[in-house]
């Protein structure tokens, strides 16, 4: 039996009176690609944020046996720092041995501008690619991606998926939220969420 890289037991989250996520179990195995689908407000982002450790669950627990990279839905970086400075800073925080070299490498791989222009002034596509690039710092085995290609053109989408799916070949795993039916094709397994509850594993249930 293959042990899970990431396992969540009965995780739930309430924001005041609102139940964003009902108690949910989740497991991610090595080499696996899981798609979270569902309408807006279904609880996809909440589930991913809890799995990533960015949000505390109101109940339940998460067990992680691998480094996790997280691409939040909204680009999360310091807008007054350049793309390089953001990458270097988070590389240091992730404990990368050669933060400057790693930042250069990711700038190149994602075709990001290497100048000193503040990242807040970059195009939406560049900001989203920076968002994805930041998630690869620290060499994670698990990637959690929240609509990672929402603001990208087809060419950029393809490049992001190439980078992301390459992780599976190295024994890693990915879990991504999407509302794009074409992207569901990148997944081996689908989890459908509605009103904070897992309602099935068929895309047709949501988008029919």
């Amino acid at each position: 039996m293959t042990s899970a890289l990431l396992r969540a037991l009965r995780i739930a989250r309430r924001f005041g009176e609102v139940e964003a996520l009902a108690p949910t179990d989740f497991e991610l195995l090595p080499g696996e690609s899981v798609a979270l689908v569902g309408p807006n407000g279904a609880g996809k982002s909440t589930l991913l944020a809890i799995l990533a450790g960015a949000l505390e669950p109101s109940e339940g627990s998460v067990e992680s046996h691998a480094r996790i990279g997280w691409v939040p839905q909204r680009p999360a970086h310091y807008s007054r720092l350049s793309a390089r400075e953001n990458l270097e800073l988070f590389a240091r925080l992730e404990g990368e041995r050669e933060p400057a070299r790693r930042a250069r490498e990711l700038l190149e791989r994602f075709s990001l501008p290497a100048g000193e222009r503040p990242s807040g002034e970059l195009s939406v596509g560049n900001r989203q690619r920076l968002n994805v690039a930041l998630s690869l710092l620290g060499d994670p085995r698990v990637l959690l991606l929240d609509e990672p290609t929402a603001a990208l053109d087809p060419g950029q989408r393809r490049r992001v998926w190439e980078v992301v799916t390459a992780l599976r070949g190295k024994g890693g795993a990915i879990c991504f939220a999407t509302q794009n039916l074409e992207e569901v094709g990148h997944a081996d397994r689908v989890i459908v969420l509605q009103d904070g509850r897992v309602t099935g594993s068929s895309v047709d249930e949501v988008f029919a």
Binding site: A54, I68, P75, Y78, F90
Partner: peptide, 13 residues
């Protein structure tokens, strides 16, 4: 505002 708190809280800081 920048959304960085989520990144930082993932065990980085």
């Amino acid at each position: 505002d920048e959304g960085t708190i989520g990144r930082l809280r993932r065990g980085l800081v």
